[in-house]
Design a protein around this nucleic acid. Structure first.
Length: 485
RNA sequence: GGCGACAUAGCCAAGUGGUAAGGCAGAGGUCUGCAAAACCUCCAUUCUCCGGUUCAAAUCCGGAUGUCGCCUCCA
């Protein structure tokens, strides 16, 4: 497949360094608060990449870390009077609650920063020995940015330009304003660990280098994260790891685009952010996941509840088609009537296009477009009285269902029973619209009786009453069903 | 100020050299007691604008305009 490599600034053919084995490291969350939609996007994007690589037959080692010690966690812990470990554990738990709902798979290795202090100290020691880092009198250790030749290659930054913009804080003991902390000496009331430089704690960038080296042979095949991590976080990781090992750190750098609100970056400092919980109070998790996949992973994605409702219509239509295919397939007798070859060809084309879209830098938006082509094809066959009863029709429905199952496994959607999903979706929408399902059912029963008596005037009056409640009635051969308008 | 991304129909959105996927909304039709769903048909001679390269450009190059991001914690 092709992947856009931030390092090369273009799409490149993805070739793993070790044959069938693929290593993938993605920067996970800092556990100090509930996850927002941006976390959802990043998690879902790399989950699909993980799933797709496995689908293609690679033996993937997926590493996603948790940052469980950091300024923000300390701040939060102080605010609520807990220790940092409690805070981190609490929000790692909340992360799993959200991610399980969104069908984000667990990574193979989910290392925590505080469980790798020894590795980080060892790495820092090596960097000092190699002349890439230095300790200060107060017990900080800094990475000497100018000692690493490739600094800036990932984010396209020039070291001298960075220098001119770098801020110098009072009291800094850095030899150069660009230098960044590997180890911070302990301040009072902060968690700290023993080190050759005294009590202290690791700098943020260090954990990813130390844990990557521990859990995968370098170079990593894929290193991912949100776009904003490219600089300085990933740039610093490269400096640390490459200075240490002399090997390239990662071959393919994959960065997902941001979630925006009204075309503006969603961020805590602006205050325009939604947590995953905010969304799941109103919408099904699969609606959110589907929505996130309707845009290419590198594009900015503008979030709104209106856009989510539109996505909901899309996923509803797909599940409706799956339900219809199930209905068709309940038949026990199939006719040996002729079946047009071009419909088979059309499905084969759709399968090919789906594949091409995913191969081309994981284009889930394009792939979903082809999903609709497949369900429209199924719809056309089920509409034709002869075709839907033929063995050819049966085979086509069966094949489309198999395709949808395979695609669904990769995308992490369409995996529910269609009828159950549609019922769940309807109840979800009803709850959002403030509709009482019991009341609807009562009116539906009354309408059924009126219809049995051929009292269509009353029947239609009830339909109007339901319509006024934003409920639409559908008459089917097996009775009336309802949905939210 | 430095670096970078993006600009496609009413809206959302694929598409990196070969003549504009898909979804939503809208119009007409089939079906239906009436509806709904589903299906069929229609809905961008054109991709922000101006130049250039090419037999051929939404796609490549230059410029303009606009929007956004990174350069500080951030997915």
């Amino acid at each position: 497949m092709k992947l856009y490599n931030t390092l090369a600034r273009k799409k490149e053919e993805f070739i793993p360094a070790n044959g069938n084995n693929v290593s993938m490291y993605v920067c996970g969350i800092t556990a100090y608060d509930l996850c927002h939609i941006g976390h959802a996007r990043s998690s879902v994007v790399f989950d699909v990449l993980f799933r797709y690589l496995r689908f293609k037959g690679y033996d993937v080692t997926f590493i996603r870390n948790f940052t469980d010690i950091d300024d923000k966690i300390i701040k939060r812990a102080n605010e609520v009077g807990k220790d940092t470990k409690e805070i981190a554990e609490q929000f790692i738990g909340e992360f799993y609650v959200d991610m399980d709902k969104l069908a984000v798979l667990r990574a193979d290795v989910e290392p925590k920063c505080t469980e790798h202090i020894a590795e980080m100290i060892a790495l820092t020691t090596r960097l000092i020995e190699k002349g890439n880092a230095y300790s200060t009198l107060s017990g900080d250790v800094y990475f000497k940015v100018r000692s690493f030749e490739g600094y800036g290659k990932l984010s396209g930054r020039n070291i001298d330009e960075l220098e001119s913009g770098a801020r110098v804080r009072p009291g800094d003991e850095k030899l150069d304003p660009l230098d960044f902390a590997l180890w911070k000496n302990a301040k009072p009331d902060e968690p700290s660990w023993e080190s050759p430089w005294g009590m202290g704690r690791p700098g943020w960038h260090l954990e990813c280098s130390a844990m990557s080296e521990k859990y995968a042979p370098l170079p990593l095949d894929i290193h991912g994260g949100g776009q904003d991590l490219a600089f300085p976080h990933h740039e610093n990781e490269i400096a640390q790891s490459e200075a240490d090992t002399g090997k390239p750190f990662a071959n393919y750098w994959v960065h997902n685009g941001f979630v925006q609100i009204n075309s503006e970056k969603m961020s805590k400092s602006i205050g325009n952010f939604f947590t995953i919980r905010d969304i799941l109070d109103k919408f099904l998790p699969e609606t959110l996941r589907y929505f996130l996949l309707t845009m290419h992973y590198r594009s900015p994605l503008d979030f709104s509840f209106d856009a989510l409702e539109e996505a909901e219509k899309g996923i509803k239509r797909i599940y409706s088609a799956l339900a219809q295919a199930d209905v068709e397939l309940t038949k026990s007798k199939w006719k040996k009537s002729p079946f047009p070859e071009e419909l088979i060809t059309e499905l084969a084309e759709i399968e090919k296009h789906w594949n091409e879209a995913m191969e081309d830098d994981m284009n889930t938006a394009g792939a979903l477009g082809h999903v609709f082509s497949a369900i429209r094809l199924a719809g056309r066959v089920s509409e034709d009285k002869n075709l839907r009863k033929s063995e050819g029709g049966r085979d086509l429905f069966t094949r489309i269902k198999a395709d949808m199952a395979a695609w669904g496994t990769v995308l992490g959607i369409f995996e529910c029973d269609p009828v159950e999903f549609l019922t769940e979706l309807r109840d979800n929408r009803a709850a959002r619209a403030g509709i009482d399902p019991a009341k609807v059912q009562g009116l539906l029963d009354a309408r059924k009786e009126a219809r049995a008596n051929k009292d269509f005037e009353k029947s239609d009056a009830i339909r109007d009453e339901l319509a006024a409640m934003n409920v639409e009635v559908k008459d089917t051969p097996t009775g009336a069903t309802w949905d939210v308008q």
